[in-house]
Every structure is written in structure tokens, then in C-alpha cells.
């Protein structure tokens, strides 16, 4: 696949590649087979790979994620799709109490090479039970790795790297990214899942973000550039473990940081990163740290309220100007 593609195509290409490369790989989840996936990610895969490897499951997150963990324990390389992060709370027990702990509790004898993909984020008027961003809940758990691909290349390439990882990996796909277009290389290339990426280099402040907020930050940085403020934009890519090195090096350079995170403000990933910056870069700071997060409400259904609840370009620009001394 090359030329113009969507993020959805990129995820699909990554799954196809994994299924072709490794016979131990299979995809399972609600509506991934006949329906082609709730976000149409797996459309066509059932025809290509058959029902053994593209498995529709009952509406029972705890059951099928547990089955995936068991399959991984038994030597398979399952890719489990959970429709949204809200529903994943039904299988949080499996992920936290089994997937994340078994290596530890078995003294390293067992590993769980499962990959769990889930959609997160708001913006499609799906209301409060389908719109939340709970990435930080997972990023809190030792024993799993948490990824948030924000580009086509990462959406395609991170999956294979995740499958090769001997421990559980949770991948968050922001729902607003599925229709984003871009170009994909003809071949699937695995990418690293250790480092954050500087998506835009700048000297005045570091905007640290991930997932769906990346593109809002890029738009904000472009607007700021017109006002003479040169922002650096860091895409975290991996939410656990955090790439402190890249973040701190950037903040030491720019001396200012703005965190943008679609999660709720209190106890957010932004809060964790701010704490680390203060711990590691205090004497380099030139302005109070700032963050733009979601309002602390269940994400509303009406469009105007949903927009108002989420981090928007204008709020990011305003926060950046404020810590720059409103230049």
C-alpha cells in the first residue's frame, strides 16, 4: 500500500503484516470479523485469513481478553481489539491482575505476549460512555507497555514491534485519527517503541502531547510561529515507560513546557510529566509549567459542549502565550 491512505488503512496494514509474518498471530474482538470492525479497521481480513484467525467474540470483554491472555500464555501471539477504552474497564481485572502480574508472580517463568488494541478519545458525539481518554489508567500499571501511535507510520509499524515484545502491550488508537490521510511506505516497517519523537523542532517552549492531540498541537505551533513563538512539539508515542530523556532534553533547551492531554486534568498523564519535569529540570525552568486537558466532566453529547470540553487549538495557543509572558 502506498500513496494516499488513512490511519485506519495503516492499522489494517500492520495487522495484515503480523498475520502474514507469524502464524501464531490472530485477531479477536467484538465485530472484528463479519462486520469488519466497529471502526472498519479489520474490513476484508476475514475473507483473506478465515475465521480461525479473525475471530468474532461475544460481548464479554473480561471473557475474550482473558482468553487472549490465556492464548498468549499458551504460545500464541494474539491481537485483541477492545471497542473503546470505556468498555475496557470490564477487562481491567484481566489486564491488571493477570496480564501485568504473571511474569512477576511466576518468578519470570511465564510471559504474556499479548497485544490489546483499543480506541479512545472524543469528538464523534458518542457521548459519555464511549468518549473517554483513560490512557493514564493503563500508563499507571507496571508490567505493561502502553503505546499511542499518532501518525500513519507509527499506526502501521508499532504493531509488529509490540507483538515481538514478550510482555503485554496496550495500544491506544484515537478515534479522530482513523480518517486522517497521509502516505504509507509500500512495505511495513517496524518502528521503535522506546523513544518519543520531536515532530516539530523549536526553541521557545516544549509542547508535550500524544495521540489525537498531536495534530492540534501542530496546528497551535503553526499559529504560534506567526506570532513569533517557536514551539517544539514532542509526540510521546510511548506512554509507559515514558521517554524522560527526550522530554527533559527538550525542556532544558526551551526552559518552558506545556502539556496537552485529552485525559481529565486531575491525575492526568500531563500531571505525571509535570512532576517529572520539576524533579529533573527545576533549575532550567523559566516559566510555570502549564497544561491543557479535558474539562472534568463526563464528555457531553452536544457538539458545542463536546468541543468545549476537549483541548482545542485556541486553548493551546493561549496557554503557550501565557507562559511566554504573553509576548
Amino acid at each position: 500500500m502506498s500513496g494516499t491512505a488513512t490511519y485506519r488503512d495503516a492499522v489494517r496494514a500492520g495487522i495484515r503484516d503480523a498475520l502474514i509474518r507469524d502464524p501464531r498471530c490472530f485477531l479477536m474482538g467484538e465485530d472484528v470479523g463479519r462486520y469488519g470492525g466497529c471502526y472498519a479497521v479489520s474490513k476484508g481480513l476475514l475473507d483473506e485469513f478465515g475465521p480461525e484467525r479473525i475471530r468474532d467474540t461475544p460481548l464479554s470483554e473480561s471473557g475474550f481478553v482473558g482468553a487472549g491472555i490465556g492464548a498468549a500464555l499458551g504460545g500464541m501471539r494474539p491481537i485483541v481489539e477492545v471497542m473503546t477504552v470505556n468498555f475496557s474497564l470490564l477487562c481491567l481485572d484481566q489486564i491488571l491482575n493477570n496480564a501485568a502480574t504473571i511474569r512477576h508472580m511466576s518468578g519470570g517463568q511465564f510471559s504474556i505476549p499479548v497485544v490489546i488494541r483499543m480506541a479512545s478519545g472524543a469528538g464523534r458525539q458518542l457521548a459519555a460512555q464511549h468518549s473517554h481518554s483513560l490512557e493514564v489508567w493503563y500508563a499507571h500499571i507496571p508490567g505493561i507497555r502502553v503505546l499511542a501511535p499518532a501518525t500513519l507510520e507509527d499506526a502501521q509499524g508499532m504493531l509488529w514491534t509490540a507483538i515481538v515484545d514478550p510482555d503485554p502491550v496496550v495500544i491506544f488508537e484515537n478515534v479522530m485519527l482513523y480518517n486522517m490521510t497521509g502516505s504509507l511506505p509500500a512495505e511495513v516497517r517496524p518502528v521503535d517503541i522506546d523513544k518519543a519523537a520531536i515532530r516539530r523542532a523549536g526553541t521557545d517552549l516544549s509542547i508535550v502531547t500524544y495521540g489525537g492531540s498531536l495534530w492540534k498541537c501542530m496546528a497551535a505551533a503553526a499559529a504560534l510561529a506567526e506570532a513569533g513563538i517557536d514551539a517544539e512539539v514532542i509526540d510521546l508515542r510511548t506512554l509507559r515507560p515514558l521517554d524522560d530523556e527526550t522530554i527533559m532534553a527538550s525542556v532544558r533547551r526551551t526552559r518552558r513546557a506545556l502539556l496537552v492531554d485529552e485525559g481529565w486534568r486531575s491525575g492526568s498523564l500531563a500531571a505525571e510529566i509535570m512532576a517529572r519535569i520539576v524533579e529533573q529540570c527545576f533549575w532550567s525552568l523559566d516559566a510555570p509549567l502549564a497544561r491543557v486537558c479535558s474539562e472534568e466532566v463526563p464528555i457531553p453529547y452536544p457538539k458545542h459542549l463536546e468541543d468545549a470540553a476537549l483541548p482545542q487549538v485556541s486553548a493551546i495557543v493561549e496557554a503557550a502565550r501565557r507562559i511566554m509572558g504573553a509576548r
Partner: peptide
């Protein structure tokens, strides 16, 4: 100071 709220900043 030229920074936020008149704070003295690095520059």
C-alpha cells in the same frame, strides 16, 4: 523582568 507577571526570566 519581562516574563509572565513581570517575572525575571533567563533572557
Amino acid at each position: 523582568g519581562s516574563g509572565p507577571e513581570g517575572a525575571i526570566v533567563y533572557v
